[in-house]
Simulated scan of single mutants.
Amino acid sequence: MTSLQALRIVIVAPESLTPAADDDDALVEAERSRSLRIGLLANGYNIVAVLPIDAFLPERIAQIQPDMIVVDAQSQARDTLEHVVMSTRDERRPIVLFTDDADTSHVGAAIAAGVTAYVVAGLAPERIKPVLDVALARFQHEEALRRELADARTQLSDRKLIDRAKGLLMSRQQLSEDEAYARLRKTAMDRGLRVAEVAQRLIDVADMLG
């Protein structure tokens, strides 16, 4: 993602019929959706698809590989979000929701579930770019924190494996701690593996042999 304007955006919106001329609420929602699309295009974003909420949503998102998902929830935002969050569970992406749903009691749960920005009403075109700017920056920050946490957990797990493998070598081959680690490290280098992988294999063999 080299620039915000180059973002490939998928809009997810409930399917709806063309509103009747006397259906004021539907006409308002249709105009709001139209304003959202115009605002995205006016700010240079690339709308690659507009997808309905159905059983094929996860597959379509996986095929298109968008940089960001913009949800046009209109009303019933909670039901819409559940589908979108489930569709991005395996491959996280920034999700920005625009809605006229006045019930904000579930905003906290939505953010916790993976929604990056939750915007209630107010779709002036000049507001869209700042919202997406902040949403993307927040998503990237959160992903960096997730990677750091995952790395820390991996390092801790690796350290535990290596310590256990060293203990096995020290007790069974009468090696010092430094000698045991050197043995693990040399084996890893000879076989093109990580030290933790060698340690895990040694532990597996020891467990199998008793």
Rank of each mutant, 00 (worst) to 15 (best):
M208S: 14
T154M: 12
I128P: 01
K129Y: 13
A109D: 13
M68F: 02
L193C: 05
S16H: 10
Q173P: 02
D23A: 06
L136D: 07
L136A: 09
R194M: 14
D25A: 15
Q74S: 11
G210M: 04
A21Y: 09
L4V: 01
Y181E: 09
R191S: 11
A26K: 00
A137V: 06
K186C: 08
V134C: 07
E197K: 11
Q200F: 08
D90L: 11
S157E: 12
E31S: 09
D133N: 11
L97C: 13
A113C: 07
L132T: 05
F98N: 00
S87G: 01
R127F: 11
P58A: 06
P14M: 04
A26I: 01
A165M: 03
L145H: 07
L97M: 13
E15L: 13
G210E: 08
V119G: 03
Q63N: 10
D24W: 12
I9L: 02
V48G: 06
E179Q: 15
R93D: 00
I47A: 05
I64T: 05
I203W: 05
L36T: 06
S16D: 10
L97I: 11
D207M: 13
A152G: 00
D24Y: 13
D190G: 04
V28P: 00
D22I: 02
Q76S: 13
D25I: 15
K129H: 14
V107K: 09
H141Y: 13
I38W: 14
V120R: 08
L145Y: 07
T116F: 04
P58I: 08
V12F: 01
M1P: 01
